[in-house]
Write a protein that binds this DNA or RNA. Structure first.
Length: 705
DNA sequence: AAACTAAAGCTTTTT
DNA sequence: GCTTTAGTTT
């Protein structure tokens, strides 16, 4: 891409930011203002126009996903591969430096990294040894984590011994924890940052080396940096001070894990020569949504003023609905999604339902399932992650492929058949020794083992699996039934979980084994499938950085949003407001807020009042619509996944109710009904442009979407 | 190794 | 109130 066309793509402020290449730069990037675009273009500009080697530009973010996205967008822009450059997460880049230099800190270069589970169990074992209450290990671990985030190592903590709130017991654990890490040649996540800072501060020559190698620094999501990460960025910027930080103080929502908005506030103090550029043009939302967002966030007293604007039109007003209970709220949301979906303009993946707490997902999930609409839950435990569902799927996976040892190990003692940790370890051993799969190791042990009891237990299990494997050609619903009976699972599993199993059987109808397994795997959370056409359910926190045409925010109540725990402390209340702001600014076209009068929370049913944040939305921005803001149209045939997949009812057409279609003249619509003989199928289609039309398939020239 | 009992915790989350 | 998990018993 030529230099000019690169710059022509940008608005004046974005261009300023890209062209400012020398010295400290603070980019205050409002929501939806093209922040990533600026970073990637700035990288490309530095490299092409400024002749800076891509190898001397360092770009840091928080998540692997964000880093990967940044990298691939720059690669596309520059049309070249950027492998091995300084683009990555704080942790990954620190790790890279430490792998080379850590011997100066007395560690070996092949140190191991402890994840949260590892550090938790280390803390636990220390507490046990100290005869302290073990159950608080999580609290201690997170306290250690925030100490390190603030660059207070055990030594610094001990130096503070005279302070009044010095916690001697905690200090002992902290010191010991750090000693143990060293003994194990291990670093936890926070150490990766803290020790890199320590390395640079204690060994100026090392820092100098990196300062020479890296001439430009860019930090994304700067409002989420903690003290250690900010210090690291400053150290890396060295004397050249070519430090560009990008962030939005209004979207700082990770205080609880050490993020410090003050970093963004004090950047100008720390770098008096810093240029500050505000990106205020929003490319995402309608004016009404921006007005609502602006009204809310303006109530926060300490912030960098930004006034978002858009060239888009006013747009549709917000809706706000009060339901009686969380279940009513969920039904209302499901119903609204169906109405909007059936109008044909939006596909399922255009919808997101956001909430403050993961537990809210339950009611929503239930309602969506009843309405037969596909959804995915980010973060929480979704249907396919339920224990019993995973168990059954694991059986199917083993039947389909006995080499799948992960699934095999999951079900080997489920229901219990006397094969516990000891036996499993033994099979594992055998498998390693003979270089066999887990299943083959079981087979050979069952014939050669010295223990008769062990032999019998294992061969019984093998027999069940073999028997089931022989029947793998069966239709999945019957196959699942067979699994449930032959394994005794149905007798063993708790009653309330059976409901979910019936649900898998129901969903399995009309699919073959491979399809079912794939469907279940596709839903397995973390690896996000963009192409899966699903409604997205997630917390407000996980929604940061994303956008959806239609956004619901559920549970807009005092106690949930703002959360109980945050209502006392003004700082935390402000963060809750920012969280709401983040939620509002995710929406492109339509934003629907809802709350429930009563809600089951933990032990009891709570009566909650609408969030006080609601009154901060300018009253002209939304409809208060009581119970049912979106009028119900005539009753619609219930679209269940089963019905969508079943082929055995006439007409044998792919244009079944719920299917989205495209008509050459009327555009996109949704099939509401289909009937008639094979050679003369009639369909009723609801088009977003012209409403419901009755068409003959033979002539209509419909395209399935 | 499994079944039982007791007890804690329960906001948000990435590395 | 319910789920998860740790510890104890059989």
């Amino acid at each position: 891409m030529s230099k000019n066309s690169l710059l022509n793509d940008l608005n004046p402020q974005q261009r300023d930011a890209v062209l400012h290449t020398k010295g400290p730069l603070l980019i205050l990037a409002g929501a939806g203002s093209g922040k990533t675009k600026v970073i990637t273009y700035r990288f490309a500009h530095l490299a092409s126009a400024q002749k800076v080697s891509p190898a001397s530009i360092l770009a840091m973010t928080f998540t692997n996903k964000a880093a990967g996205e940044m990298r691939s967008r720059i690669e596309t822009l520059m049309n070249r591969s950027l492998k091995g450059l300084w683009i990555g997460t704080f942790h990954a880049l620190s790790n890279r430096i430490l792998r080379k230099e850590i011997d100066r800190l007395g560690f070996h270069r092949d140190f191991v990294i402890y994840d949260d589970d590892d550090s938790n169990s280390l803390v636990r074992s220390i507490l046990k040894e100290f005869k302290m209450h073990e159950a608080i290990y999580k609290g201690i671990a997170s306290r250690i984590s925030s100490m390190k985030a603030a660059l207070i190592g055990p030594n610094e903590f001990l130096n503070n011994e005279t302070s009044l709130d010095f916690d001697e017991k905690f200090a002992r654990v902290y010191v010991r924890y750090q000693d143990e890490l060293k003994k194990n040649n291990a670093l936890d996540f926070d150490d990766l940052i803290m020790d890199t800072v320590r390395l640079f501060e204690e060994h100026p020559a090392v820092l100098k080396k990196y300062n020479k190698e890296i001439s430009h620094i860019m930090v994304d999501e700067f409002q989420d940096t903690n003290t250690a990460q900010y210090r690291l960025s400053r150290l890396l910027a060295g004397e050249h001070q070519n430090l560009c930080v990008v962030g939005d103080d209004d979207q700082s929502i990770y205080r609880f894990r050490g993020a410090d908005v003050r970093n963004i506030m004090s950047f100008e103090k720390d770098f008096p020569s810093a240029r500050v550029i505000k990106l205020e043009q929003n490319y995402r939302s309608t004016q009404v949504i921006l007005d609502a967002a602006g009204g809310v966030i303006s109530q926060n007293p300490v912030r960098k003023l930004k006034k978002l604007w858009t060239e888009k039109n006013e747009g549709e007003k917000l809706y706000y609905c009060v339901a009686n209970s969380e279940n009513d709220e969920a039904r209302y949301i499901a119903k609204s999604i169906r109405e909007l979906y059936l109008k044909g303009k939006y596909s399922y993946s255009d919808f997101a339902v956001l909430y403050r707490m993961n537990l809210q997902a339950r009611a929503l999930e239930e309602a969506l399932r009843v309405y037969g609409m596909p959804y995915r839950i980010i973060g929480g435990i979704s249907f396919y992650h339920r224990r019993e569902v995973k168990d059954i799927i694991s059986y199917l996976k083993v039947i389909n492929n006995p080499k799948d040892s992960v699934s095999l190990k999951r079900i080997i003692n489920c229901p219990p058949r006397g094969i516990g940790d000891t036996t499993t370890a033994r099979i594992e051993n055998e498998a390693k020794k003979k270089n066999k799969s887990f299943f083959d190791a079981m087979k050979s042990l069952s014939s050669s083992s010295d223990s008769a009891a062990l032999k019998e237990k294992i061969s019984d299990f093998i027999e069940i699996i073999d028997e089931l494997t022989a029947k793998r050609g069966m239709a999945p619903p019957q196959l699942i039934q067979l699994v449930l009976e032959k394994t005794g699972y149905i007798k063993w599993v708790e009653k309330e979980r059976i409901e979910n199993i019936t649900e898998i059987i129901r969903m399995a109808e009309g699919m073959n084994l491979q399809e079912l397994i794939d469907a279940a795997s596709l839903f397995s959370g973390a690896d996000e499938r963009v192409d899966s056409n699903c409604i997205t359910l997630m917390t407000l926190h996980s929604a940061k950085g994303l956008e959806f045409p239609v956004v619901f925010i559920a549970g807009v109540e005092n106690g949930l949003l703002p959360h109980f725990h945050a209502m006392q402390n003004p700082e935390e209340l402000h963060e809750e407001r920012r969280l709401f702001y983040v939620g509002i600014t995710r929406a492109k076209d339509i934003l629907i807020l809802s709350s429930a009068k009563k809600r089951r929370l933990y032990s009891s049913i709570q009566e909650l009042e609408p969030s006080s944040f609601l009154s901060e939305i300018p009253s002209g921005c939304y409809f208060y619509t009581g119970m049912m803001p979106i009028p119900m149209v005539e009753s619609v045939p219930r679209i269940t996944p089963k019905r969508l997949r079943t082929v055995d009812f006439s007409p044998p057409s792919i244009f079944l109710p719920g299917v989205r279609v495209k008509h050459p003249k009327w555009g996109i619509g949704v099939v509401r009904d289909s009937y008639g003989e094979t050679d003369d199928v009639k369909v009723m289609v609801n088009f977003s442009t012209v409403g419901v039309k009755r068409l003959s398939l033979k002539f209509a020239n419909l395209e399935r979407l």
